Amino acid sequence: MESIVADTAATGGRRGGGRRPSSLLRAVPAVVVLVLLVAAPFVLAPFATTVLGRILVFALFAVSLDLLVGVTGLPSLGHAAYFGVGAYTAGIVAIEVTSEGLVLVLVAGLAGAVAAAATGWLAVRSSGVFFLMLTLAVGEIVYQLTTTLDSVTGGSNGLYGIPAVRVGGTALTLAGYVYWFVLAVFVLGFTALWLVSRSPVGGALRGIRDNEPRMRSLGYSPFRYKYVAFVIAGAVAGVAGGLFAVQVRLVTPTEAGFTTGALALLAVILGGAGSLWGPVLGAAVVVLVRDALGPTLEGHGPLVLGIVFVLAVYLLPRGFAGLAGISAAVQRRRAASRRTP
């Protein structure tokens, strides 16, 4: 019976027959996209490079949420709490101790993991609406703390004066260098989440998502697996928050608020929950509408995002990732028709 979980982990939770392309062929699109991202600062203006960096930061945050929503089946409304904890931790360490990039990323991830471990122990014992409300309460508590602890967080004014991030003792002052640092951390974070989702642990998480009573009858502990996923997601969200502090050099309570978490959930739904790469595209849409097109929309960015969301729900119920599934199904049908005499 446990072979079911192993099969699920090997296939990433997908079902269906047919031959699959080799690992090398499947890696080609990822390599091409990575090369384009690395070369982006050479062809983009500094502002466009900065926007692309913000997309990567928000994408890593959205992918961490997708580990809960799409892989584990735990829709969270308070995931921004760990993003905010990571951002404030990185900002405070940069001001008071050191602005070395590796240190900031590590302490931000550790802070996110500790916060998730402290709150997830209670949250993952619930499910459905109760889990949703508990995570929302956690997010609201963290948001209120960021606004009231003026001496630590700067209150409603935010934490400002964060120095430029350093790598090997050299301050990264140009937009392109900061972007490459963000890109490197994003690739590492995304790869870590992808490995988790494709591991036996990821297979067990999908099994719990699809049929928790059956997984419990097979000897698995849903609480332990959910708790591990919650902590991992919190750690990566903290890393994303640290990257935000590194790039923007200003952290406000908004980063830990409901709006940020809701936008991340919107990115997951737009991209396709459970695909990991889909939320990256969803995050790109959210950031482009909010940051790049926001000034030209005269404050109507949220309205446009709402319209995009409604259209996506009706036209792309499985998000952008669903388009890839449709394309694969069409190719399989064509291949089957060619083999049919």
Rank of each mutant, 00 (worst) to 15 (best):
L195A: 12
L188E: 04
S199C: 08
S197H: 01
R198P: 05
L188C: 07
G207W: 04
G189M: 08
D210H: 12
S217K: 13
L218M: 15
L195W: 11
G189I: 04
A192N: 02
L205C: 08
G203C: 04
R214Q: 11
L195K: 14
L218T: 12
G207K: 00
S199Q: 08
G207N: 08
V187G: 12
A204Q: 02
W194I: 01
V196T: 09
A192Q: 06
L218H: 07
L205M: 09
M215F: 13
A192W: 05
S217P: 01
R209N: 03
P200K: 10
G203Q: 02
L193P: 04
N211W: 03
V187L: 15
R209V: 03
S197A: 09
N211V: 03
R216W: 08
N211D: 15
L205K: 04
L193S: 06
I208Y: 02
G207F: 03
L218F: 15
F190L: 14
L188M: 07
V187M: 14
W194C: 05
A204L: 14
F190E: 00
V201S: 12
L205E: 01
W194T: 07
I208C: 01
T191S: 11
R209T: 05
R198N: 07
V196F: 10
S199D: 09
E212S: 04
D210V: 00
F190A: 11
P213G: 03
P200W: 12
D210G: 09
R216D: 11
N211M: 11
I208G: 00
P213W: 06
L205W: 09
W194A: 09
G202S: 06
M215W: 06
D210W: 07
D210N: 08
G207D: 07
A204F: 04
S197Y: 00
G203F: 00
P200H: 12
M215E: 11
F190P: 05
G219I: 15
